[in-house]
Design a protein around this nucleic acid. Structure first.
Lengths: 200, 200
DNA sequence: GCCGTATGTTGCTGTTGTCAACATCTGGCG
DNA sequence: CGCCAGATGTTGACAACAGCAACATACGGC
C-alpha cells in the first residue's frame, strides 16, 4: 500500500481526470514561473504523478500549451458573446466586446499570454478553429458597425476588424507586461475608463 | 584587424568582440527557433566558442535576453525620434511615432518580441531606463496633442498615453503573432494604411 | 472470470543552464 | 624587455528537463 500521508493519497493507480488536473496545474505553474519556467515534470509532480504520465495526454509540452490556448480562446469567445448579448446598438456591442476582451486578459493572464505566445504552427486544428471563432466574432461586430454608419473611410472589413482588434489587444498586452503602473487599473472603474480611452 | 563578424576560424584564443557576436547570433537563433528554442550553448556554438564562454559576458540566459531587449528599446526610441523629427504638427508627430513603432516591430520582430516577453524584473536598470525613455517619448507626444486641442474628454495624461500606445502596440503584436494574413501587410503602403486605421 | 486497451511507472538518452577549476591572453609597470 | 594581475575562454561536472521505450496496472466489454 502506498504511503497514506501524501496530500493526494494516491488511492488508485489511475488518476481519474489527469488531463484536466494537468491543465490546472500548468496554469498555476505559469502563474508562478511564467512560460519559460513551465516544465511538464513539474506539472506531473504537482498532480502527484510520474514524470512521463503527462505524455499519455499531451504529446509534447507545446501541445499542452496549445490546449491551454484553445481553452482560453473558447472562454474569450464566450465572454465576448455574453458581453455583447446585453447590447443592441452595433457600436455598443463592439465596445462591450472590447471591454470583455481586456477583462478576460486581466482575469486570466496566464491563458492570455499563452494564447498569444505559442507558435500557431504547433496548434491543433481544433485549437486553431476556436481562435478563429473568437476573431470572427469581432469581425462580425465591426462589420455591423460599418454597415450602420457608412463612413466609407475604411473600405476593407478585415482591415477595420484588425484595426479595432489592435486596441484592446495592445492594452491587454501592456497591462500584462507590467508596462502600466498597477494603481492605474486596480479597480473595475479605472480599468473600464482605460479601456474606453484605448478603444477611442 | 578583421571586423568581428568576419569568418575568423578561431585564429586567436580570444574572440575580440564576443559580446556583440553573441547578441547577433542570438537574434539569428531567435529568428529560427523563437524564444523557447533559444539556448546559450547554441549561441556559443554559432560563434565558435565553448559552451561556458557566454557567461563571461552575460550572467544568465535571461540577462542575454534583457540585453537584446535593451538594444531594441534604444533602437525603437531612435526610430520614433527620427520619425517625429520630420513633423511639426503635434498630431502628425504622434501618428509618425505610431507608424515608426509598427515599422520597427515588423523590421525587428525578434527584438520586439523579446522586448515585451522578457520579465521586467530580470532586466538591468540600464535596460529599464531605455524602455522608460521610449515610453516617455510617446507620453510627451500625446501630451503635446492634448495641449494643442483641449478636448477635456481625457483628463489624465498617462491614461491618454497608454490608450494611444495600445493601438500600435496591439497591431504590432497581432502582425508578429501571425493573426493577420501576410498579404494584408506585405507592402509599405498596405502596412501604413493598416497602421493608420488602427491609430484612428 | 478473462482479456484488450487505456493509463500510469520506471529507466534511459541527449540537451541545457549554471558553476568551479583551470588555461590563455592582454595591458600596464618595473 | 620581462613579469604579473585581471580579463577572457575552456574543460569538466551536476542537476533538471523533454522525450522515448519497456513494463505494470486498472478498467470495461465479453
Amino acid at each position: 500500500m502506498p504511503p497514506p500521508s501524501a496530500p493526494t493519497p494516491k488511492a488508485t493507480y489511475h488518476h481519474g481526470d489527469l488531463r484536466t488536473a494537468l491543465l490546472e496545474a500548468a496554469v498555476v505553474a505559469l502563474r508562478e514561473g511564467g512560460i519559460a519556467g513551465l516544465s511538464l515534470r513539474d506539472c506531473a509532480r504537482r498532480v502527484g504523478v510520474s514524470h512521463a504520465a503527462p505524455y499519455r495526454h499531451f504529446a509534447s509540452k507545446d501541445l499542452l500549451l496549445a490546449a491551454i490556448a484553445g481553452q482560453g480562446f473558447a472562454w474569450l469567445a464566450a465572454a465576448g458573446r455574453a458581453a455583447m448579448a446585453g447590447q443592441r446598438d452595433p457600436q455598443a456591442r463592439l465596445d462591450a466586446y472590447g471591454q470583455a476582451y481586456v477583462r478576460f486578459a486581466v482575469a486570466h493572464p496566464e491563458h492570455f499570454r499563452v494564447m498569444f505566445t505559442a507558435q500557431i504552427a504547433d496548434c491543433t486544428e481544433a485549437d486553431q478553429e476556436v481562435a478563429d471563432a473568437a476573431f470572427g466574432l469581432l469581425r462580425d461586430a465591426v462589420a455591423a458597425v460599418q454597415a450602420a454608419s457608412p463612413d466609407a473611410a475604411i473600405p476593407d472589413a478585415d482591415t477595420a476588424a484588425v484595426a479595432y482588434w489592435s486596441r484592446p489587444h495592445g492594452l491587454a498586452m501592456l497591462l500584462l507586461d507590467g508596462r502600466v503602473p498597477p494603481e492605474a487599473w486596480d479597480t473595475p472603474q479605472k480599468l473600464a475608463a482605460l479601456v474606453h480611452a484605448a478603444l477611442g
